[in-house]
Structure formats: C-alpha cells, structure tokens
C-alpha cells in the first residue's frame, strides 16, 4: 500500500513499486485527464507537477514519489497560474486535436509560477519538451503571453470579436 497526495487528497493505492505514476493516476485512481503519449518521457503529454515542478509521470516509478504533492490537470485550475493559463487557452483557442494540452498546460503553469512574465526564449526552453503533433506552437506561445500579461495578443478567436 502506498499513500500518495494527489490534488490535495491522500490516496491509498495498492500497486507495485515500479508502476509509473501515470498508470496509477489513470488506471487506479481514475484521473484520466493526464495522457499517455510516448511512454519514454519524450513528448510531455503525461506532465504533472510534483511539489510544483513539472515531471513526466510515464517514467516516474510510484516508489520514487515519497510525500511530495502531486498536482494533475484536474486541479491545476485551482492555482492562480493554472487558472490564467486555462482562460488564455480558451481565449486563444489553442487546441486542435487536444491530446497534448494537459501536458502543455501543466508545463505552462509551472513556467508562469516561476517566471511571471516570460520571454520567447524562456517559453522555448520550458515548453520544448512538450510536443504538439498539430503544431499549435504559435498559439501556445500566444496563450502563455496572454496568461502572463492579461493582455490580448495577436491571435484571438473570431467569435470573441477581438481578432487582430
């Protein structure tokens, strides 16, 4: 039996010590917002936070977590940065197929918590481990800037009436 602190709640799970956190989250606890992408820590789709640091949950054995706090996409909206990122994500309509967005939002929220007003270079460094097969990178960058500044930038959805 392992006790994990997930989104502020203690969860008791009976899993082998080498089970990656992603499996525990999705298959055991039932939090399926975090996605399986590559399985080898190379695409970022499975990103969650451990004590506010982004980690790849597909390559994180549950036995290595200890008492560190796990935050997933289901609860990131309860943090100020997470809420801002999610709003900007909708405003800019970042998503195309949407598969990578849980991981993108987790990485972006961690970036803003650390660097409130990131430069393009900061964004590249923090986000380049998160791959988007639809190549929405331009919108991802816009949304992060909008979340940071609260100001609308170049790319807004037309129905919003504010397209540049």
């Amino acid at each position: 039996m392992v006790t994990l602190r997930v989104n502020g709640e203690d969860r008791q799970v009976d899993v082998p010590p080498d089970m990656p956190l992603l499996w525990v989250l999705r298959d055991v606890i039932g939090l399926t917002g975090t996605k399986f992408g590559c399985g080898i820590a190379q695409c970022g789709a499975c990103t969650v936070h451990l004590d506010n640091q982004p980690v790849r949950s597909c390559q994180l054995p549950v036995s290595a977590i200890g008492d560190r706090a796990i935050t997933t996409i289901e609860a990131i909206g309860q943090t100020p940065e997470g809420a801002k990122v999610q709003q900007a994500w909708l405003a800019v309509d970042v998503v195309q197929c949407g598969y990578c967005q849980s991981g993108q939002i987790m990485a972006a929220a961690a970036l803003l918590a650390r660097v409130p007003n990131p430069t393009d270079r900061d964004i590249d460094t923090a986000m380049s481990g998160n791959i988007c097969r639809c190549a929405t990178y331009v919108r991802i960058r816009e949304a992060i800037k909008q979340a940071a500044t609260g100001q609308q930038h170049g790319l807004q959805v037309v129905v919003d009436g504010s397209a540049a």
Binding site: A41, G44, Q53, V55, R56, A64, G129
Partner: peptide, 14 residues
C-alpha cells in the same frame, strides 16, 4: 532537460 535538469540534479530518477 525534463529528466536531467539544467542544474545537473536530475529528476524522475536519481
């Protein structure tokens, strides 16, 4: 960087 980290500390695994 997501595992090795820029400061060489490493995460995911020691």
């Amino acid at each position: 960087a997501s595992c090795h980290q820029w400061n060489g500390a490493g995460q995911q695994t020691a």
